[in-house]
Design a protein around this nucleic acid. Structure first.
Lengths: 208, 208
DNA sequence: AACGACGGTGAGCAAGCGCTTAGAGACCGC
DNA sequence: GCGGTCTCTAAGCGCTTGCTCACCGTCGTT
C-alpha cells in the first residue's frame, strides 16, 4: 500500500517516499502552511519561501498548487488507513483491537496534527476527481471501524444499538483531535490516545 | 445575552436580530457561501450575488468581509452557549442535564449545520482581536460542560477519571457533527441528538 | 573541451481580489 | 416643491494571485 521510507532500524521517516529532496522540502513547507492558514489562504510564494526557494521552483516539481494538496492528502489517507487496518487485522478480541485502533489512530492525529489537519479538513479544496478518489479512501476507513464493531457485537463483547451511527461518532471523535490538539497542551499524544481508547470502549459497552 | 427575534408564538427566527433586511440577506448569503467553500475561497462578489445585490452594497452594511464573519461567529457562539447553559442550569440530575445538553447542542449543530460549520471551523480566519473575543466564549462553553461533569462526579453519578480530557472529547464530538452531518443522510437531527446523548452518558459511566 | 539534461531563478502576465468613489433613485419632514 | 438622508449601483483602482517563460549554473558523459 503506502510505502513510507524506513531506516534500517525500522523507524519511519515522514514523507520519506517523496523524492527528490527539493520536492519533499516543498511538500513539507506546504503541509505547514496549509495547516497554519488553510489551503486557500496560503500562497504559492509562501510555500516556496518556506522551502527556501523562488516561487517558480514549485512548478518544476508540481503542476499546480492543488496537486501538492492532493499528494499530501493521498499519502496521509493511505497512512491513516494503514493504521486502522493494522489494528483491525491484528490479534486479540474485538475490544482489544478496537482499543488498539483508536489508540494508534488518535496518536497519529495528535503527533502529526499538522499533517492530519490538512488531510482531514482541506478535503473540499481538492478538485472534483481528486476529491472522489480521497472520499473512497475515507469510506474504506469507515468500513474498517464498522467491521470491528460488528465483530464485537457478534461475539457478544459489545452492546451497540446503532453500529453505523456509532462508527461515524468514533471516527469523528478521533479525527477532530487534529483540530484542537496542541503540542504545548495539557496532554501528550500518548495520554490522549489512552484516554480516547477508554472512552470508546465505554461507548460500545465493552465490559472491562 | 443573545436576543434572537421571536414570533409571538415563541418560534425563533434565525438571524432575526440582524437588521435591516438587506443586511440580513447579505449575512445569510455569507453563511451559505462560507459553509460551502470556506471563508478564504469566498469572494465578496459571490456573497453580494447570492443576496441579489451589487458587490458594493456589501460595504454599506459591513466595513469588511471579516466583519461579516465576526457577526456570524459572535451570534452563533452566543446561541451555542445559550443552549449549553439552559441545559446545565435546568432541573434534574447531572445525568439528565448532561443528556439534555448534548441532545440540544448536537441537534443545533445538525439542524443548522451550515451555520455551525462556519462558526466552528472558520475561527482562524478572524482577525486577532475578534478571535480572542470568540475564544473567550468557547472557554465559557467548555466551563459549562465541565461543570456538569464535576457535579455528576461529586454526586456519585459519573465515573470519570479525567474530567478535563473528557470535557474536550464531549465538546469535540458534538461540534464535529456540523462537519459530516448532511440533510440527505441516514439520520435526522433528532436521531443524532438522541444517539449522541446516549453515547456521552456511556462515556461518563452513568448507570441508566 | 563540448555537450545535453536537470534543477533552479528573475521578471512579469492575465485574471481576480477586497474595497472605494461618484452619482442615481426612493423616501422623509417641512 | 425642495433639500437631506438612506440605500444601492457602475465603474474602476491598486494589489495579489496562480502560473509561465526566457535564461543560467552545475552536473555526468563523451
Amino acid at each position: 500500500m503506502s510505502a513510507a521510507e524506513e531506516t534500517p532500524g525500522g523507524e519511519d521517516i515522514p514523507w520519506g517516499e517523496v523524492t527528490p529532496e527539493a520536492a519533499r522540502r516543498l511538500l513539507v513547507a506546504a503541509v505547514d502552511a496549509f495547516a497554519e492558514r488553510g489551503y486557500h489562504a496560503t500562497t504559492t510564494r509562501d510555500i516556496a519561501g518556506r522551502a527556501g526557494m523562488s516561487p517558480a521552483a514549485l512548478y518544476i516539481h508540481y503542476k499546480t498548487k492543488e496537486e501538492l494538496l492532493h499528494r499530501i492528502s493521498r499519502i496521509g489517507h493511505d497512512k491513516a488507513l494503514d493504521i486502522l487496518r493494522a489494528a483491525a487485522d491484528g490479534p486479540g478480541t474485538a475490544a482489544e483491537r478496537l482499543a488498539d485502533a483508536v489508540r494508534s489512530f488518535v496518536r497519529w492525529h495528535a503527533e502529526r496534527h499538522t499533517t492530519a489537519r490538512v488531510v482531514q479538513y482541506e478535503l473540499d479544496a481538492l478538485g472534483p476527481e481528486h476529491r472522489t478518489e480521497i472520499v473512497a479512501l475515507r469510506r474504506e476507513s469507515e468500513a474498517t471501524v464498522r467491521r470491528i464493531l460488528n465483530e464485537g457485537v457478534a461475539a457478544g463483547e459489545f452492546d451497540v444499538p446503532d453500529v453505523a451511527g456509532t462508527t461515524v461518532a468514533v471516527l469523528s471523535l478521533c479525527i477532530d483531535v487534529s483540530r484542537w490538539f496542541n503540542t504545548q497542551g495539557r496532554h501528550t499524544a500518548d495520554e490522549v490516545g489512552a484516554l480516547y481508547a477508554d472512552l470508546v470502549l465505554r461507548m460500545v459497552g465493552a465490559q472491562k
